[in-house]
Amino acid sequence: MKVHFLQILPLFVIGLGAGFLNGLLGAGGGILIVFGLRQLLKGRLKDPRAIYPTAIAVMLPLSLLSVWQYARAGSLELTHLGWLILPAIAGGAVGALLLHRLSVKALSRIFAAVVLVSGLVLVL
């Protein structure tokens, strides 16, 4: 798929927002990219699922940059990291492998409800 030159500015702005959100809150940049690319490329993709690995491919280097910035500012504490690395790798791979075998629609709704309630707990 070719990117039209008129899409360069919107893509820059989407990237800017995603990077800002990810740096500010340590999460959320991927959501913005998925949402932005969906709107920008509506009906132009042979396989719309390509948006998701694309968002991850953008967020990986940006997260690495954020981690570096957090480390420079002394905000990175690695005491819990040992408990996170293996589960993260194993869980990420298992989830991606299960993607084509599970119906995740109901799971998505349950997850969204959990996220919504978690957000309310933090805000209220």
Binding site: L11, F12, G15, A18, G19, G23, V58, P61, L62, L65
Partner: peptide
């Protein structure tokens, strides 16, 4: 095309 804005945004966001 997403990365340049993303890099700038990351610096602003982490700051």
């Amino acid at each position: 095309l997403l990365l340049p804005g993303g890099i700038l945004g990351t610096f602003l966001g982490t700051a």
